[in-house]
Nucleic acid binder design. Structure first.
Lengths: 122, 122
DNA sequence: GAACATTTGTACGTATGTATT
DNA sequence: AAATACATACGTACAAATGTT
């Protein structure tokens, strides 16, 4: 019933950090714990932690700076929205869920997505 | 001049496979060489090859099936386009470039993207 | 500026598990 | 059952960028 009971470890780390960010407990601009710290916190290796943090980066939730750390990005849609993108046939939707959640904060975006969603074979 | 001269190895593998796919030399449904073969071809480790192929998967260019192999996905936008997505403030645009290229094949998508692009602070 | 510690980036080797053939 | 191929995960090493002393 746990939900994340059987999930791979990198995904548990990803989910945990994502919750920290989206719950607002770590705010935009805050630095995440170093990957060495995350290793100890989650009992995971560098590879596992690194993959989780990289996935957060790909999702646009954090920014990694070599020599400095990983920082939570500003997700204020009103300020950050720079362009629209149409993605054909995503295979790995997992990473894009956080993006969708951020997107939902923008009513115009939701409207546009709904407009486009049923369009097929244009 | 080289272009890919100083790029990391995983990116060279990614680029090489991407060219194979988008040039049409490997068609939709074709199976890529196994990762063990790619290791030999590029003189790279499993981790490096795996990252390149996973990035291709995240970009929606290939599908990985455990026990079987990695297959080139159908990128016919007319058939594959399932929904639109608006991505605020991408940090790692590299992976999304192949998606954009596929998107450009659809005139309605291009029109919609242009419509939305200049919209800020909705 | 220089030296040093910290932190992320890339890369290798290896082991084990799971799915497919 | 067995071989193949991807999936996850560990440990390690060195490079590059950054921050501090």
């Amino acid at each position: 019933m746990g939900g994340t009971g059987k999930a791979p470890k990198y995904q548990k780390v990803f989910d945990a950090l994502q919750r920290e960010i989206q719950s607002g407990r770590v705010k935009a601009g805050d630095r995440l714990p170093s990957e060495a710290e995350l290793e100890r916190t989650f009992g995971a290796s560098r590879i596992t932690v690194g993959r989780a943090v990289r996935d957060l980066q790909l999702a646009g939730l954090v920014e990694r700076r070599a020599g400095s750390g990983s920082y939570v990005k500003a997700r204020n849609v009103s300020e950050a929205l720079s362009f629209g993108l149409l993605i054909p046939d995503l295979g790995e939707t997992e990473i894009f869920e956080p993006i969708c959640q951020g997107m939902m904060a923008s009513p115009p975006a939701r409207q546009l997505a709904l407009l486009w969603s049923p369009a097929r074979r244009p």
